[in-house]
């Protein structure tokens, strides 16, 4: 493993930067994500920072059932993120479409558009659940990095991490 790769792995594990995108959510999960970043829950103490641009982010925290309007934008944002990248589907709507499943303007869960690594059900998700999901994602990532460092292989099979953390019970 090259030194640069080691450094990138370490950086991703220790201080993942997140970007938040609302793909058609009711705002409930979005305010809980912001809540997770503010003093009571304070994700920043774990080195997690929210960034404004997808080009700086490692984790895409996505909320809401994907509406037809946001579908292409979501794909674009995902494509802009540098490798390695991860997606957390936050809330029941992001997992499956939730109450909006079947609406004419709703495509369904986030995984209809981009590969998802972690699903957090809940309407709305509690900040504790978000923190726990991030910690589990990092744990799974570390295990994977130590187990041979098959980074390229992992990205070719998007759902590897997702399979390890099938779902998180809030």
């Amino acid at each position: 493993m090259s030194l640069i790769k080691k450094a990138i792995d370490w950086g991703t594990r220790k201080s993942p930067w997140i970007i938040h995108f609302n793909a058609g959510s009711c705002n409930g999960c979005d305010i809980e994500i912001v809540d997770a970043l503010t003093p009571r829950f304070d994700l920043e103490r774990l080195g997690i920072l929210q960034r404004g641009t997808p080009r700086h982010a490692d984790i895409l925290v996505c909320t809401g059932a994907v509406s037809l309007q946001t579908k292409d934008r979501l794909k674009q944002i995902y494509d802009q993120m540098p490798e390695p990248k991860f997606v957390i589907a936050t809330g029941t709507c992001a997992c499956s479409g939730g109450v909006f499943d079947g609406c004419y303007c709703v495509l369904g869960g986030i995984d209809r558009v981009i590969p998802v690594d972690v699903y957090i059900p809940g309407c709305a998700v509690r900040p504790e659940a978000i923190i726990s999901a991030v910690v589990k994602l990092l744990g799974a990532l570390e295990a994977q990095q130590k187990g041979g460092g098959k980074d390229a292989e992992r990205r070719s099979d998007y759902s590897t991490v997702g399979r390890e953390i099938q779902s998180f019970e809030g």
Partner: peptide, 28 residues
């Protein structure tokens, strides 16, 4: 971008179900 078609969805749900759907018009 956030248009989900809630009003149309209301036309195929019972009144009690609509309460929970309309609650999710806006989480705030």
């Amino acid at each position: 971008y956030n248009h989900r078609g809630i009003e149309k969805a209301c036309e195929s749900r019972y009144y009690t179900q609509i309460i929970y759907l309309l609650e999710r018009v806006c989480g705030i």
